[in-house]
Amino acid sequence: MGDFPRKTAPSRRPPQYMLDLFNAVADANGTTKTPRLLEGNVVRSFEDKVHGEQTYFYFNVTSVGREEELLKAELRLFKLKERSQHAPHLCRVDLCELLDGSGVRGSLISSKTVPLYTEGWEVFPVTRTVWKWVRNSSSNHGLMIITSIPAGNSLHLSPVRFAKSSSRQDSPYPFLVLFTHDRRRGTPKNSRTSLLTGEGPTPIAAPQAPRSRKVRAVPVLATGRLLPCQKHPLYVDFEQIGWSTWIISPRGYSAYYCKGSCPFPLGQSFKATNHATVQSIVHALKLSKQVGTPCCVPDRLHSINLLYFDNEENVVLKQYDDMVAVSCGCH
């Protein structure tokens, strides 16, 4: 997943929107509880890189692969409440794409009318514009907001203010949200998004287990033989394996693992493949010294969702397949 993750905590908190989205999609273990809620299998939020300026915004979206399918992009701005009581109740907000680095030339993306005397999030659709930026990063010069109020038959500039990035951890800073699908890894049903390849941080090597911990004994029957192939509990704590510096949620999950024997003859309860059945016969008849018994491995796997910081401190919600062993079989 790209470079190694930062060893220190990120300098900002994730947007509440991304936390709420994770909680709506997944349970405490990251297991998907609302399969069709998200569009695609990756959601990214990008922080505004223009600090202090009220009307200009820039988002670096170069971490999105050109081969990904961009399904939706939204600009989310928090409008502050107007303090003056002498202005009209409504104002017009125009969102423009900057066409060059001068900050003067712009192309209108969308307009909307918003109330002046309330505060809250305003959402602007920017899918076509961001798609162009993903295809050609040099075309990304940022966005500009122009606010105005009606005055007779004309419009005058409005004092409407939007929250901007600041040192305050609780500041509702502006951000861009992208919903994509990683088409490199197939359809949502059989996609294979790897924790070790992809655009996010590369997990660091797992630390060795403390010496005080005792290795679990292999489960055996009273006769001394191994138990038949089956699923066993396994909880993965992300802090213990060194991933807690970049993973926001969950803090860990129940992965389970498969262990046990695949004795001859393999019955239906072992969920054996045809190849495993033949291999079992060859081993039992000692037709080849190099052929062992089939292995007990996951027969069915489920995905989980991870909410994490990438190397640019963008917050990503991503579905990772084949993370939970649901059942075991002899293969």
Results as ranks from 00 to 15, higher is better:
175 F>N: 02
111 S>K: 07
252 G>P: 05
302 H>R: 11
310 D>N: 15
134 V>S: 00
162 F>N: 10
309 F>E: 03
328 C>S: 01
164 K>S: 12
136 N>E: 13
162 F>V: 03
173 Y>L: 09
187 T>E: 12
325 A>F: 05
53 E>K: 13
188 P>H: 02
143 L>E: 05
152 G>N: 06
238 F>S: 03
221 L>R: 04
304 I>V: 12
106 G>E: 14
120 G>Y: 11
27 D>P: 02
282 V>F: 10
238 F>G: 07
209 A>W: 09
76 R>N: 12
229 C>M: 04
267 G>P: 06
144 M>G: 01
260 G>F: 02
12 R>G: 04
72 K>N: 15
271 K>F: 15
32 T>N: 06
262 C>A: 08
88 P>I: 08
269 S>C: 05
315 V>W: 05
73 A>P: 04
114 V>M: 11
270 F>D: 06
286 K>H: 15
290 Q>M: 06
86 H>M: 10
253 Y>W: 06
233 P>K: 04
49 K>S: 14
162 F>L: 09
202 T>M: 13
302 H>D: 15
216 R>K: 10
153 N>G: 12
201 P>E: 04
227 L>C: 01
224 G>Q: 00
231 K>Q: 03
289 K>N: 09
73 A>V: 00
143 L>H: 09
110 S>M: 08
129 T>E: 10
32 T>A: 11
231 K>G: 03
131 W>Q: 13
136 N>Y: 13
9 A>C: 10
273 T>Y: 07
234 L>T: 01
183 R>G: 08
220 V>C: 00
289 K>S: 12
232 H>S: 08
158 S>M: 08
210 P>C: 08
181 H>S: 06
163 A>C: 12
183 R>D: 06
56 Y>A: 05
177 V>T: 12
284 A>E: 14
272 A>H: 07
31 T>E: 04
329 G>Y: 02
275 H>T: 15
269 S>L: 11
275 H>R: 12
176 L>W: 03
65 G>E: 11
232 H>D: 03
44 R>F: 08
197 T>C: 07
181 H>A: 01
67 E>H: 15
96 C>I: 06
189 K>P: 03
270 F>H: 13
30 G>P: 00
96 C>V: 11
108 L>E: 01
37 L>Y: 07
123 V>G: 09
47 E>Q: 12
132 K>F: 01
265 P>T: 04
167 S>L: 15
51 H>N: 10
29 N>A: 06
3 D>H: 09
166 S>E: 09
257 Y>D: 00
121 W>N: 09
2 G>W: 05
79 K>G: 05
266 L>E: 09
98 L>I: 05
297 V>E: 14
51 H>V: 15
31 T>I: 06
246 W>S: 07
42 V>I: 15
307 L>T: 05
206 A>W: 06
40 G>T: 03
251 R>H: 10
311 N>K: 11
245 T>A: 10
141 H>Q: 00
107 S>G: 10
66 R>Q: 11
80 L>A: 13
44 R>L: 11
327 S>G: 12
161 R>I: 03
17 Y>V: 13
28 A>T: 09
61 V>E: 03
297 V>Q: 13
182 D>I: 04
72 K>T: 07
22 F>G: 02
141 H>F: 15
95 L>G: 02
219 P>G: 01
317 L>A: 04
277 T>E: 12
129 T>I: 00
